[in-house]
Amino acid sequence: MKFRSYYIILCAFICLLASCSKDTYDPPGATFNGRIVYNGEAINVAYDQVRFQLWQSGFGKLTPIDVTIKQDGSFSSMLFNGTYKISFPGGQGPYMTKQNGTAKDTVALEINGNKSMDIEVLPYYMIRNPQFSISSGKVTGSFKLDKIITDANAKNIDKVVLYLNTTSFVSDAGSANVAKKELSGASITDMNNIILDVNVPTLTRTQDYIFARVGVKISGVEDMLYSPVKELKL
């Protein structure tokens, strides 16, 4: 028994020593961040749904680095210094890229230290002036919709939705809303003044605040367009 425990201690010691050697590479140290914007205004999306890709050639087989866009349209990624290409996979996001999304490699990107860059895209619609209010257990949201793409690529609206959630992650995902109210695209009478209201449901956990957001589903586009998340006091 004694004999065996010596071996185990020896093994542990060797492992300890072996793991102590320095890594061959430094970790990626350059931050690349920015926002997805239209005329400087951030485009809000659902969390963990919309992404773009960075490609770096010269290191064997090409595999992309996915960069996920956050709820408020911002993104950030830790990278090694080098030259990258930014590409938007087809059908990602409630917008078209400025190059119409057909070209795979769109924007060249030089990373040398931290870099901040906003990426201009062409959204199908923009949500303007979203307002939320709460009175007697009912949340009312009003906003204006601006149709940005009006040429042959224009798309209609499937529905507009007002969402409520208990956390600041609010979207169409089943786990990201506790209540919602839909209005189909056909029943929108005035794009300049869309009003939705929804009752605050009984919450499992007592809290005196709730988060609200409106979203727009554009027909034929998977990812919805959202307004910024607004916290309301109950």
């Binding site: 087989k61 090409l62 595999t63 992309p64 087809g90 059908g91 990602q92 995902a173 089943g174």
Partner: peptide, 30 residues
Amino acid sequence: PDRFRLGNYYSYIADNIIANNPKLVRNPNQ
């Protein structure tokens, strides 16, 4: 709840397969 996205209709072709054969085009909405 389960959600089936447009990009689920046809499955993702792995990056190493495309790296081996750049003639392959990617499936839509992914």
